[in-house]
Design a protein around this nucleic acid. Structure first.
Length: 646
RNA sequence: GCCGGAUUAGCUCAGUCGGUAGAGCAACUGAUUUGUAAUCAGUGGGUCGGCGGUUCAAAUCCGUCAUCCGGCACCA
């Protein structure tokens, strides 16, 4: 009976729809070879019914099979995985025999491996490790696999002293089929969920990029391991391309550009707070004015709430318990403890509570450019992107449950419109639903999630589910945009809150004369203005569009003779509300052009004798080598029109 | 907060073996009055992040604190 069973054929179907019979127990590599020799050569793994498997794995049932080649995205991923688990790990063990391996996953563009070492690494150690890796790759060993059960696995890794692997095996729910990968002719083996390249000849170009500390299991209570990061690509060209992108990102660094363009500075005496210089502050004010205009048009009412508020309010709102460590405190009279506000919502609720509210008053959309202080951990600070004092484009919408979808929808539209104006085209949305620990009944959560989901769908936004990641008081949407060089930034948020109004006893009177708690929508589009400006500095690489540029036009004279004409032009432009500078220094025009181009001024007007006598200007735009001439009167009209287009 | 690295002129950076500092740009002065990405010459500028230690002698070696950078953890 058993024999008959074993000889039975199985039916394999391929992605192109074709089907073929094979004998039971056939291996992936044999199937690839059966299709073509070239496929066999390129193949590195397979997908069996959508699940990744090694080519050495047997297939015993009718299955859908997809052969993964080294040229595919999946192949690249497997190569990276093998590179970290088999090559980097082995290199570390060769160089540091007493090290203990933890985990080595792939990440975007590369991989890392976490290890415990006797002595922490520094960047100077990377070339040495890289060299060792190259040696291992050059040998080009085959990678083989065996299956063991839990007990065997525990024994293997206990004997080896790999305590982290032992830990992983112990915590695993599975009893059998632990995969042990090893390289032929070596004593190296490692536990891994695979799959791996069948041999190291498929490894492409790679580079170790940085070392860092990282907590075991990502928990700061655990010991710190050494994390070695690397990047890997199909070939040298792809690797170089990627390294170029990194270089480009470095050039765009908002800290560098901020200094060069004199936008802001940071200093020791005010760690985590921005000193805005006039040029940076112009950008800040321009953005604030822009948002204010948008909010006014949408029926928001702007307010301003106190900077310092007694701790009792934070206790009532629930923030004190959770966040008091991160609040800046001030001493008041009679030993009162006051806190610099870390957020605006309780303040807004207090405004809502003034006077009796009717359902007819709702929705109330309360906005504030709220300046907040949070004592962020020192290691979290980053330029102006993560600071201790920041300004939110914050607003809270107090509404009835039936208004939630419409308000959410309106918000999504506004958010998209605003992102578009800043040149962001791609938008991702994460929908975070109920977390394990939460406030409010399941019925309320059902209602809230349904309403929010309806809004995303009606807004025609693509979203991905982020299960269990909602706030404790309600589900939320997180808006992630992609910048000019493909990096993601999470900025906007929309959170539904059924808790805070109740905690702070904010009510309205409904149609039946009953007191009810309103729903509160917490929402921000830019998030923090400081961070937003950091992001757009990098998005534009310092070349701000005209409406945001701190200096929109610089007027350059050719000689002293043109000074009066230049001054007259400067005055007319300033009178028209245009941000200009006048450069009438005794310098060559090439020198001036270079300097102002370097400062990313979008338009340079050159005036010499020719322009003076014809009341015209020469217009040179940033990034253009040539220039055009225009009558000054026309130019001013033309420019104003350009300003209206964002 | 944790791990590693860094901190030298206004800016970007060099500084060997421990022998008390150097470049380019910028600034200032003078000459040049110039047509679309750097005109020439000269001058000044530093408690080498702070404090302490080792040493005849410290930018350099050691300790410590601060800040910044790369990650981790955190992010109401």
């Amino acid at each position: 009976m058993d024999n008959l069973e074993n000889q039975k054929n199985i039916l394999i179907s391929f992605p192109d729809g074709k089907k073929k019979e094979f004998s039971k127990g056939i291996k992936g590599l044999e199937i690839a070879g059966n299709i073509s020799k070239s496929l066999e050569k390129k193949s590195v793994a397979m997908k069996v019914n959508g699940e990744f498997k090694d080519l050495s794995d047997e297939i015993n049932n009718d299955s859908k099979i997809e052969i993964v080649t080294i040229e595919s995205e999946d192949g690249l991923e497997i190569m990276r995985h093998t590179l970290t688990a088999q090559v980097l790990a082995k290199a570390i063990k060769n160089l540091y025999p007493k090290s203990k391996l933890a985990i080595g996953p792939t990440i975007e563009n590369g991989f890392y491996y976490d290890v415990l070492l006797e002595k922490p690494l520094s960047n100077e150690d990377l070339p040495k490790i890289e060299k060792e890796m190259k040696k291992i790759v050059q040998v080009g060993n085959k990678i083989k696999k065996s299956y063991v059960n839990k007990q065997e696995a525990l024994k293997l890794f206990s004997e080896k002293g790999e305590t982290y692997k032992v830990d992983i095996i112990k915590e695993s729910k599975q009893e059998n089929n632990f995969q042990i990968y090893f390289q032929e002719n070596t004593n190296f083996f490692d536990l891994c969920y695979g799959p791996h390249l069948p041999n190291l000849k498929h490894v492409g170009s790679f580079k170790l990029t940085k070392v860092a500390g990282a907590y075991w299991k990502g928990d700061s209570k655990n010991e710190m391991l050494q994390r070695i990061y690397g990047t890997a690509w199909k070939n040298e060209d792809d690797l170089k391309k990627y390294l170029n992108i990194l270089e480009e990102a470095e050039k765009r660094d908002h800290r560098k550009i901020g200094k060069k363009l004199e936008l802001f500075h940071l200093q020791e005496e005010a760690v985590g707070s921005v000193f805005w210089h006039d040029k940076g502050w112009k950008i800040f004010l321009e953005i604030e004015a822009y948002i204010r205009k948008k909010l006014n048009a949408q029926g928001y009412k702007e307010v301003k709430t106190p900077q310092i508020i007694d701790r009792t309010l934070w206790e009532k709102s629930g923030h004190w318990t959770k966040f008091k460590e991160n609040m800046f405190l001030a001493k008041g009279d009679d030993n009162k403890v006051l806190a610099l506000k870390p957020m605006n919502c309780p303040g807004h609720v207090e405004i809502f509570k003034q006077g009796l509210k009717s359902y007819r008053d709702l929705p109330i959309r309360m906005a504030e450019f709220g300046s907040c202080h949070r004592n962020e951990p020192s290691g979290a600070l980053h330029g102006i992107m993560r600071v201790r004092q920041f300004t939110q484009d914050d607003a809270h919408i107090f509404c009835t449950e039936s208004q939630v979808t419409e308000e959410s929808l309106k918000f999504c539209d506004l958010l998209r419109e605003i992102y578009k104006d800043f040149g962001f085209k791609e938008l991702k949305v994460k929908f975070s639903d109920r977390p394990k620990e939460r406030a409010g009944t399941d019925q309320v959560w059902d209602k809230a999630e349904k309403a929010l989901l309806k809004a995303v769908k009606e807004a025609k936004l693509k979203y991905e589910l982020n299960p269990g990641e909602g706030a404790f008081y309600g589900p939320k949407l997180e808006f992630v945009l992609t910048d000019a060089i493909g990096r993601d930034w999470q900025c906007g948020t929309l959170q539904m809150d059924f808790v805070l109004p109740e905690r702070l006893e904010a009510t309205y009177i409904d149609e039946n004369g009953q007191k009810k708690y309103p729903v509160m929508l917490h929402r921000a589009i830019l998030g923090s203005l400081e961070r937003w400006i950091g992001i757009i500095i990098e998005q534009y690489s310092g070349k701000f569009p005209i409406w945001l540029a701190p200096t929109q036009i610089t007027i350059c004279t050719i000689t002293e003779k043109n000074c009066n004409y230049a001054k007259a032009i400067d005055k007319s432009l300033k009178d028209a509300g245009i941000r200009t500078e006048l450069d009438n220094r005794n310098e060559k025009i090439g020198y001036k052009i270079r300097e102002h181009s370097d400062k990313k001024v979008p338009i340079i007007l050159v005036v010499g004798d020719k322009e003076n006598s014809t009341e015209s200007v020469s217009i040179r735009r940033l990034g253009n080598k040539d220039f055009e001439q225009m009558k000054f009167n026309e130019f001013i009209k033309f420019f104003r029109k350009e300003l209206e287009i964002k």
